[in-house]
Structures are given as C-alpha cells and as structure tokens.
Design a protein around this nucleic acid. Sequence first.
RNA 1: GGAGAGGUGGCUGAGUGGUCGAAAGCGCCGGUUUGCUAAACCGGUGUACGGGAAACCGUACCGCAGGUUCGAAUCCUGUCCUCUCCGCCA
Length: 433
Amino acid sequence: MLDRKFIVENASLIQENCARRGVKCDVARLVQLETARRQKLQEVEELNRQANETQKKIGQTKDPAERETVKAAGRQLREAKDAAQAEHDRLDTQVHALQQAIPNLTHPAAPIGGEADSKDIRRGKTPIRTFDFTPLDHVAIGERLGLFDLEAGARTTGHGFYFLKNDGVLLDLALQRYAIETLIREGFMLTTTPDLARNEILEGIGFNPRGSETQVYSIENTDLSLVGTAEITLGGMYSGLTLEEEQLPIKVAGLSHCFRTEAGAHGQATRGIYRVHQFTKVEMFAYTTPEASDAMHDAIMAIECQIFDGLGIPYRVIDTASGDLGGPAYRKFDLEAWMPGRGTVKDGKPSGDWGEITSTSNCTDYQSRRLNTRFRKKGEKGTQFVHTLNGTAVANTRAMIAILENYQQADGSVTVPEVLRTWMGKDRIAAPA
RNA sequence: GGAGAGGUGGCUGAGUGGUCGAAAGCGCCGGUUUGCUAAACCGGUGUACGGGAAACCGUACCGCAGGUUCGAAUCCUGUCCUCUCCGCCA
C-alpha cells in the first residue's frame, strides 16, 4: 500500500506507474475522494474540539439547571460530530478500496513492459548440458525411481497433491538442510513458521484471501488462511512493532509448507510436480532501512545464485518487467533453471525450457505500511516504515525437478549433486530393486 | 474444551465516570555541582494524523472493535493475547 499523501501529491507519477504495470486505476478519483475525506476529518476534529470544551464546562458547572443547558449543547455537538464522522468513514472506505489497488512504485532500473520485456541479466556457473541420450522429464524419472506418487495424491486429496516416496523424501529433506546450512552461514535467524496466518496479515503482505480469483485456501469459520509462502508469516512476525535502527537489518529464514489453489492455472504446465497445491519451501525475509534495501536485494539474489551454483543447476536471472511485478514488488529477480524435460516435444525429444525456481522481491515500504512495521532512529523524532524483502532459498518441488532432469543418467539413475550427498547419504538415486 | 485472573507510556506500576496523555519510580537526554568514576540536584523525555516558516496549536490513541454517557483508562458487549488451575492430547 502506498501512502495517501504521497499519492495525492504525485498523482500523475502514480497514474503513469499504474499504466507501466498494466494496472487500471482511477488516481484522479482517489485524489478527489481523499481531498474530500481530509476536509471532513478537519470538520470532525473541530466539532470534537468544541464538544471537548463544552464537556469540560459541564464538569465545572454546579447549578443543575445551567448544567442541563450545557449538556444539551454538548449532546448536539456530539451528534453533529457523529454525522460528520459517518460521512468521513464512508469516504475513507472508498479511498481505501482504490488505494489498495495501486501497485508499488517501480525501480528505475526495472525493464518497462510485459513478460516479454523482462531482461535476462545473468547466467549461472553451470553450463547447459547436452545429452547423448533422450532425456526424460521429471514425471518419468520420478515414476521409474519411485520418488513420488501423483495418483495416490489425487486419490487422497485431489489433483495437484502428491506423496513423496523413498529417495524423494530424502532428496526433499537434503534440499531443506542444504538451504538452511547456507542461510546459517549468511547470518539468517532460523525459523519454522506457522502454516496458517490471519487474513489481515495476508492482506498486509499483498495477498487477497477472498474473492473468486484468490490463490489462497481459507479455513472455514475462522479468519485464518493457509499460507502460500512463508513470506506471509515472516512478514507478520514484526507486524505492529517499532524496531530500533540498530536492530536492522533483520534477516530471517523460514521453513514452511506453501499452499496455493492455483485457480485459473489449468492447462499451463500442470504436469507432474511443477505446479502443485502444496510444497515445502525455505524462504528468506529481510527487514532493512530504506537506504539499505537495494543492496539487500542484490545480496539475496546472490545467495540464490550461490545455492543453485552449488547444486550445479544451470539457470538464468531475470529482471522482471514492470507489467509482471505484481502489486507489492518494487523490483523482482527470478531465477529460472534449465529443465531438460520441459518444453515442446519434437521427434520424441523434449526441447527443454527455463522454469522458475526462485524469486526475490524488494517490496520497499509497501508491505510494512499496512503491517505497521516501523523503525526509530536514535536521537530523531518520529518513526519510519522499514523496507521488506523476500526471496526463495529453495522451493522443494521446483528444485527437485531441476535436479532430476539435469542429473539423470543414461541408465535411468540420477546422480546426487555433490552438496547434497552428506544429507542424502548416497551419491546416486537408482531404481528400487 | 471448562473455571478463574489479567492486558496502562522504553520498563516497573498507580489510577473504578469529568480538572488523565495519564501519579510515582526506573531508564534515557540536556544542564549544574563535585580531582576522575559514582552520587546529588534541576529541567526535559510517547506515537500517529491535521494546521503552522517556527514556537506551537488541534484531534485521536491506556490490547483491538463496538456500546452506554454531555463526558470512558475507568461501566457494558464482543474479540485477540497472556497467566493459573482442571480436562484432553502428539
């Protein structure tokens, strides 16, 4: 959420930014309503002032008859105030609705345009492998090696759910452990987070828990939802608090399950475990001062690169274009791994394709304003909103796809990446005997 | 799940209808004094929003949301959270 005052004072800039982001928003209407709201607020405050004055007089008035006269005046003032307040609240609701639809500002360096305009800014250390056999996709590999059971998932829960089995479980745990070890070295505080959060926290982070196009599972008869990412719970951790500047930056790693309805996503890449309703993720989250958020964003992206360079997965880094940023992000970098089993199949051979494996966003003060997470500078009056950033360390299903497809061997086995062997307890995943 | 107690400023804690944004102590900041340190003394010290060049002024805020009242930290209702006891339980 952007600051109302800022919106009013920079209406044309905001309107332009909305256009760049492909968001329809009537900024002029917002400005008009907000101006009216502020006038009403002044009216409310003035009536309150008069009522307060009158009320003090009542306490001091001893004569009963006179007291009743002053009381009546006070009552009248409060009634006038209530009417003005009701009008103010009506305007406030309207402004809030418009305000909520306005996306964050955009980093000046972020590419302008739609998905096609996103920029490929960096490649990982691992080159794309050429196969001397026809590579399989992760579904075929997983079936052959007994790593997951999609049909059992569908029977038990529904399409988009799965059981991990055998070495699939070990691989999942190894990835978590590898990510966590990396984040310990990088100075993150480790957490496992709740898998449910209050709807107000979801909204603060920028998720919409209600409505037909919601990506969120909600819990009936409560105001709780299943989290789509630990970003939600990690962002909720300090909501409503005022931090000291010396506490910043705060870097938190969160291990959680992630639940997504993926409403409207049918048809696109639904095969296997690429797009599922539940997965496990190690997430990074950071709270910084406004001056430090750009550097932190680069640092988080560098950690993501380190993790996937370490895993020996070929990837590219995408500087996401304005139209594809989503509401809260000021700038977003995605890592896309090369997945040999994806893409179009020609002559029985898959072309391979890039697939998103991580994403890191600088949300500046867009989330902290709604979550009310502030910080105070020593010796300075007042408070400021912190900047928040998030980034994926490892999203398990996507990482598993990348590993299985890139490390598959001609004999059908899969070599375990060097860095995972300690946690896997083996260097090769072979078909069960 | 049942019964009870409680949530007040950075902290401790007083305050049961008006003069309370809130005593007192601690802490913190500034000053005075004292070889240094410490102590003592004096003054200051919440946040948000609005107005103002500023001094400052106004409004709101005593977990949160409502209600009663001319007036609520104080009374009522709901809700969230904490603690104690009982029950259940991985």
